[in-house]
């Protein structure tokens, strides 16, 4: 299987303070990879470095075999990499419709952008009913749907998701996880997921990457993390 994302000896941080140290792992095409670890392990920093919001101090990231160094953040989505940041990233002052349109503005294929928007409304019924509502009027679950739907309008090949179930009711977060799995199986989307809720993340993941204090301590099939109690105890604490 080929890897859509190859992370090689990646280090980055804020100013002189290093957060990530020599992070290396691969994300195979068409799979769900879950990044797991305690608060402060560097999970969000990792995603921000992958999407170029933070520049790595050393190491490199290859997306589809191409080095991402020097590629500006705003070009990445055009290459097929979408990042839904922590806190969902819905623009609270814009309406649902405007948020979705924003996700497709860069696309030359206007017709397909509109088609993608209709698909999002079909996928997330609550959004279709609240098109004219401003982002700040939505519930937490609706915001997550909007952020996810908006990313899908780019028809990405790799989706980076930061804590999609944060603050959501278990039922809603379960639905979102199921949907991610379906998108992967159905359309060949690759998902890289940062999640605090280890159980639900492992429920859909193919691979688990465990981080601690800015390093990758283990990258292993998710089934192994699910089933091997000793491993779970040692690395995930439950």
């Amino acid at each position: 299987m080929t890897a859509i994302l190859e992370v090689d000896e990646l280090s980055s941080g804020y100013g002189p303070v290093p957060v990530l140290r020599d992070v290396t792992f691969e994300v195979p095409t068409g799979t769900v990879t879950a990044i797991l670890g305690a608060n402060g392990a560097g999970k969000t920093t990792l995603l921000r470095t992958l999407s170029g919001l933070l520049r790595p101090t050393t190491g490199r990231v290859r997306f589809d075999g191409e080095d991402l160094r020097g590629v500006p953040v705003e070009r990445l989505v055009r290459r097929g990499l979408a990042h839904v940041p922590e806190g969902r990233g819905v623009v609270a002052e814009l309406t649902v419709e405007e948020n979705l349109r924003l996700g497709g503005l860069w696309r030359r294929d206007r017709a397909d952008a509109r088609r993608a928007q209709d698909e999002v409304y079909q996928l997330f019924d609550p959004l279709a009913r609240r098109r004219r509502h401003a982002g700040h009027q939505l519930s937490g679950g609706e915001r997550q749907m909007l952020a996810l739907g908006r990313a899908l309008i780019a028809r990405p090949r790799l989706l980076l998701l930061d804590e999609p179930s944060l603050g959501l009711a278990p039922r809603v977060s379960g639905q979102i996880m199921t949907l991610l799995r379906q998108l992967c199986d159905g359309s060949g989307l690759t998902v890289l997921l940062v999640e605090q809720n280890v159980r639900s993340a492992l429920g859909i993941a193919d691979q688990g990457v465990v981080m601690s204090l800015g390093r990758v301590v283990m990258a292993t099939p998710a089934a192994q993390l699910r089933d091997d109690e000793q491993l779970r105890h040692a690395y995930l604490g439950f």
């Binding site: 919001l53 705003e74 623009v91 814009l94 503005l105 908006r150």
Partner: peptide, 24 residues
Amino acid sequence: TSLGLRMRASAFAPEVSRLLGVQV
């Protein structure tokens, strides 16, 4: 207009806008 939408989004949420391909 979409230029107006881009400008508003850039003002409200520059980082998110960049992730969505807007040249902030």
